[in-house]
Design a protein around this nucleic acid. Structure first.
Lengths: 345, 345
DNA sequence: ACCTGCTTTGCACACGATTGCAGAGATACT
DNA sequence: AGTATCTCTGCAATCGTGTGCAAAGCAGGT
């Protein structure tokens, strides 16, 4: 690898002059500057960022920690974050924090060792696992911004969707359509974690729609979803609508309903949450609720960059809450009435 | 940030001793070693990788260049590559090379400046764009391994699926089922690029199945797919099977067929290519062809690591070709016979 | 001729780690 | 006691850049 010194020898100057010439400093004579720049280009000089980072004590790099990439929500987010970070002059260092990968703490340790200028941390289902490491990192001067649900977010910079509001939107939509027997498929509920379920439940209560235990099913994996749907269909009074708390789960519900010969939306309404690209691939296209990912990513990056550069007007931790919107597609419709159902076909 | 020198002061030794103690060197007295390690832990010492990388002239980092992440094939690949890289002791630096992002050349320049130990480059539809930069990088001692189609791969380390064989498998499957009117949806065909289409076409020819121009449709985006499907259905002799050259396109075909009231597979067989997770989300589940991504990623990383460490037995560029397998699911069936079709319903 | 000011360049140190080499003590052996 | 050996520690150089400071060279004004 060719260094500043190599160019300096060729040009008959000192490495300082070469450094300044390549930085286009006004301190160096225009003619020699051009000569040096040409020489560097011909020699295929590539600055050694490692050395530069050491000297300038900044890497122009932000770490992005994401639980996984098999759920399509995350790739979409990564793409947007990459766009915005590049725009701000930062490059990205991606780490996956899922169980079989590095744990969240390891990711943070690695980013800290590599002296990332800042860290964007997206929490998974378990919330913020590495809270103490995050605090330590912040204390040592590296800003961290969290995205997603966190148990106690008082002392953190945070960007999150308003899951509770989204849940309320969906429940209202179903109630407006006239559904009164509604089932919910949720994942092992960490205390307070799944606000979308809470918001959903609140509206049902307000509207006087019951949610008996048999209609509220915890699912941990695809198999659970299959069993759950089967059990719902076998009830004496089966639901007319199913809320899957993630679009990716709704996809599994679709499959199971299809195998059972139940058509969507005429015999069963299905709604999801997140508004992934997936939602429009499914047929019928899925009614769901979600925020546009791009503005979310933009807020995420902007806040971090402002923290890094110390330009944020408000020194106290910020919480940016984005309200998701209801997107009505083809998977939701009014319930078939009893009489009509038995008379049907 | 606390440095070796800080710990050295606290311990009353020189920074050399601290460095050796933390590296668990046998050159330092066991008792002082332990004392230093404790001190470092209490002080929250985090090695400065930037400095270490400069000194050791190695970053234990490999660059991964991927066209985009909205096509679900890539996230799956990223995940696997991350797994295998971590296993080999390397961390990942991800770059997106799609048009609106950094171009391939910029990605390589950045990785070169950051002194990545090696580069994994996944080509997109346009093949290897930054060939000269790749050659320069290889020449300067940083190994590069390519994944995907490349026009002239003689002097490159390469891992690729055998698209031609995959195309043949699919065509044979359709022919075996008895289809004789088969349509193909492909993307703007760069010369030699889409071997999957070539292999598919070869088998049709061998079996004496015609592929008239009206049945071979170029598509550039979703809208093209919609139009194409509509046009196919309007033909006097519409096809009984459609081959979409990517699973993600097959998903769009599904949607359009559904809107047209054509049921899969009873009225139309649809097959894809890649075997994404998506293929099993669709209903009916998609018949497709693909290689398991994990072994592909493993070969990809292993080859690069062997090159980095100079342990590969064969110094000449290697081509590793993986043969994909046919996965028959629920979207393919024998064609309805003419007579039966008109008598049907 | 001398002073002042401006442009341009080089010297030398710093960033934070690793590591070869020398040397200080301690121990063992003749 | 003297010497060889072994264990442990510190000195100092190094990786490749960036940059404050000094100084050289030159022009212009008195």
């Amino acid at each position: 690898m060719v260094t500043l010194e190599d160019i300096a020898l060729k040009a008959g100057v000192s490495h300082s002059t070469v450094s300044r010439a390549l930085a286009d400093s006004p301190l160096v004579n225009p003619s020699t500057k051009e000569r040096i720049q040409n020489l560097a280009r011909e020699a295929g000089y590539q600055v050694n960022q490692v050395a530069r980072n050491l000297k300038t004590r900044s890497t122009k790099t932000i770490g992005l920690v994401v639980p996984e990439v098999s759920n399509p929500f995350y790739p979409e987010l990564i793409q947007r974050v990459a766009d915005h970070a590049k725009l701000a002059g930062y490059s990205l260092q991606l780490h996956l924090s899922a169980a079989d990968q590095e744990s969240e703490s390891d990711c943070i340790a690695s980013l800290s060792a590599n002296r990332a200028d800042g860290v964007l941390l997206v929490t998974g289902e378990r919330g913020l696992v590495a809270r103490s490491q995050v605090n330590a990192l912040t204390a040592s001067g590296t800003p961290v911004v969290i995205m997603g649900w966190v148990e106690d977010s008082d002392h953190l910079d945070l960007v999150a969707g308003d899951d509770s509001a989204g849940g309320r939107e969906l429940a209202s939509h179903l109630a407006d359509l006239g559904h009164t027997r509604i089932a919910v498929l949720g994942k092992a509920p960490h205390r307070g974690a799944f606000d979308r379920l809470v918001g959903f439940g609140d509206v049902l209560r307000e509207r006087g729609i019951p949610l008996p235990p048999a209609m509220s099913i915890e699912v941990k994996n695809e198999e659970d979803v299959r069993l759950g749907v089967t059990r719902l269909l076998a009830l004496p009074d089966p639901p007319t609508a199913i809320f899957a708390y993630q679009d990716s789960l709704a996809a599994v519900v679709y499959r199971q309903l299809e195998e059972a010969g139940v058509s969507i939306p005429s015999e069963m309404t299905v709604v999801g949450f997140d508004d992934l690209d997936l939602a429009t691939y499914l047929s019928p296209r899925l009614t769901t609720v979600g925020a546009h990912i791009s503005p979310l990513a933009s807020a995420f990056v902007s806040l971090l960059v402002a923290r890094i550069q110390g330009t944020h007007p408000e020194p106290a931790p910020q919480s940016i809450i984005v309200t998701p919107k209801l997107i009505v597609r083809a998977s939701s419709a009014p319930p078939r009435t009893r009489g009509f159902a038995s008379a049907g076909i």
